[in-house]
Amino acid sequence: MSVATESGATGYRPSRTMPIWAEVRRQASRRRTQLALGFMAVLPLIVLAAFEFGGGEDEESGGAFDSLVGLATSGGLNFALFCLAVSAGFLLVVVVALFCGDTVASEASWGSLRYLLAVPVPRARLLAVKLIVALAYSAVALLVLTGVALIAGTLRYGWNPLGSTVAAEIAPGPGLLRLLAIVGFLAISMLVVAGLSFLLGVLTDAPLGAVGGAVMIWILSSILDQITALGTVRYLLPTHFSDAWMGLLSTPAQVDDLVKGAISAIAYATLCWGVAFWRFTRKDVTS
């Protein structure tokens, strides 16, 4: 590629700009990254403490996770599952939206985005690196939550089979695989949030707008999904299959809904990212 050095400065190659590791460190130095990851690590410990010191009185809430609460202290796997279940609806959404929505928008709001583009980091490369790193941080957040919950739960409650009310107990070995599969599905379903927030982050210069917008759309979709009168339209909602991971607790595991959920999430994420790339590679960067 001797030609490449001819048009650019010495040592400049478009494919070497913005190394992924540099972006990882760029994000790692940020307080919000440290706080978000730290909270993911602390949450299971808070939950554990709540179980330990909380009163013994069970409230009759009748929620969807009732059975999971009852089983949460039965073993490390169940404790991790409980932590995942309570986080999946909102906390994970916020964290993923934060990582993916804020990454481009904050550079724009600081004014550093135009200097990166003037390096020049090719626009598509900039987005790709930002997206990959944001997704990696989201995955790390999910894994930290699971890992800490699993370790803390196992130390406190033991290495016991994975229990649920929908099927018989699953031995610890296969149970761990099921738990990892649940983590995998949650990761896939979070792609919708990642896609929405990333798109909003590219469209706006306000990091809060991107994060909040994505979370709001997620909540709106969840609310619409509760309205059964909408019929088949609900299948198009990005959150419709977000609970499908529970099928993995069944024996044998029920994957049909997971497959549909994965299709929905991947399709939405691809659409959002496609629009984000299309827009960003064409727009005038004025911030």
């Binding site: 490449a4 048009s7 004014g111 003037a118 020049p120």
Partner: peptide
Amino acid sequence: PGSPVLSRVGALVEG
């Protein structure tokens, strides 16, 4: 946007 030749340009634009 992104022309490699921009690497031969240093810039301060808009603060």
